[in-house]
Simulated assay, not measured.
Amino acid sequence: MLFAQRAFHIAGIYGLAVLLPQYFMELLPPDFVKQQLGEANVPGAVHPEHFYGFVGVAAAWQVAFLIIARDPARYRLIMIPGILEKLSFGIPALALFATGRLSATTTFFGAIDLVFAVLFWIAFKKVGSEAPAN
């Protein structure tokens, strides 16, 4: 149970730390954002509603991870969509990088999500094996 608590707690805190600052990127001077991210990677430049929707949904999942960390046995089944949440960015990130459509920096964050997907799967299996038989 301790493994699951730590994996989901770390994932939730990490995710919020990475995602929430993105809400304020549009407030920064455009030249600064372009200098930091590159012209092609300016988030929300064409459709800000998609960008903010992504950040909002992703941040909500980080809160769900913190809830799972509080009682992994109780919320074990929610780990499955949590795994899918991590795979939904990690796999496309690798595929886009392989085709030259994604920067190495963004791919690195996708790889971190894949690591969390594996940790979540291990946690799911461990919590299942630790649960008392009914």
Results as ranks from 00 to 15, higher is better:
Leu2Asp: 00
Ala4Tyr: 11
Ala4Cys: 14
Phe8Met: 15
Gly12Asp: 12
Tyr14Arg: 15
Gly15His: 10
Ala17Arg: 13
Ala17Asn: 13
Val18Gly: 02
Pro21Asp: 08
Pro21Phe: 14
Tyr23His: 10
Met25Asn: 05
Glu26Leu: 11
Leu27Pro: 15
Leu27Gly: 15
Leu27Ile: 14
Leu28Thr: 09
Leu28Tyr: 01
Val33Ala: 06
Glu39His: 04
Ala40Met: 07
Ala40Leu: 15
Pro43Leu: 06
His47Leu: 03
His47Gly: 12
Pro48Glu: 04
Pro48Asn: 01
Gly53Ser: 06
Gly53Trp: 03
Val55Ile: 00
Ala59Phe: 02
Ala60Leu: 04
Gln62Ser: 15
Ala64Asn: 09
Leu66Val: 02
Ile68Thr: 13
Pro72Ala: 02
Ala73Ile: 12
Arg74Glu: 12
Arg74Trp: 07
Arg76Phe: 12
Leu77Asn: 05
Met79Cys: 10
Ile80Asp: 00
Ile80Leu: 06
Lys86Ser: 06
Lys86Asp: 05
Leu87Arg: 05
Phe89Gly: 01
Gly90Pro: 00
Ile91Asp: 00
Pro92Ala: 04
Pro92His: 00
Ala95Gly: 04
Leu96Ile: 05
Leu96Lys: 02
Ala98Trp: 00
Ala98Asp: 01
Gly100Cys: 08
Arg101Glu: 00
Leu102Pro: 06
Ser103Asn: 02
Ala104Trp: 00
Ala104Asp: 01
Thr106Pro: 00
Thr107Asn: 05
Thr107Arg: 00
Phe109Pro: 06
Asp113Asn: 15
Leu114Arg: 03
Phe116Ile: 14
Ala117Lys: 09
Leu119His: 13
Val127Ile: 05
Glu130Asp: 05
Pro132Val: 15
Pro132Asp: 10
Ala133Gly: 09
